[in-house]
Design a protein around this nucleic acid. Structure first.
Length: 103
DNA sequence: AACCTGACTTCGG
DNA sequence: TCCGAAGCCAGGT
């Protein structure tokens, strides 16, 4: 897939600072497609490794990790905690504090 | 070309 | 705050 959206998405994800998180929809919007959250997912699936993307900093709008337990969930949560991102009792991140605010 | 699927999101009850 | 339904987009079959 070689669309502008794809490239932009990669570029945007690379900018997410350590200790912060971004939502799929947020990234999609910045990349120019407010409704493209699902495309962001594709990009992660296809280029997270080769592009060296901080995929663990991408979570859903509820502030929760979207991966199924046993297939990355634990890893993602650990990586984020290592960067200082906190999870509440129900595994949610306080977006008020950790959401990346490009500005 | 139709149909299915996914690391999503928003909205109403 | 939680749950279900409906909307969305693009790639794979």
């Amino acid at each position: 897939m070689t669309t502008d959206f794809h490239k932009l998405t990669i570029a945007v994800i690379k900018k997410i600072p350590r200790g912060k998180v971004a939502t799929y929809g947020q990234i999609a919007a910045i990349a120019g497609s407010p409704r493209g959250a699902r495309q962001v997912v594709r990009t992660l699936h296809s280029s997270s490794d080769k592009e060296n993307l901080p995929w663990h900093r991408v979570i859903n709008s509820k502030g929760m990790i979207s991966l199924p337990s046993g297939r990355g969930f634990e890893l993602q949560q650990r990586l984020l905690e290592d960067e200082g991102v906190e999870f509440d009792r129900k595994g949610r991140v306080n977006l008020k504090r950790f959401l990346w605010q490009p500005a």
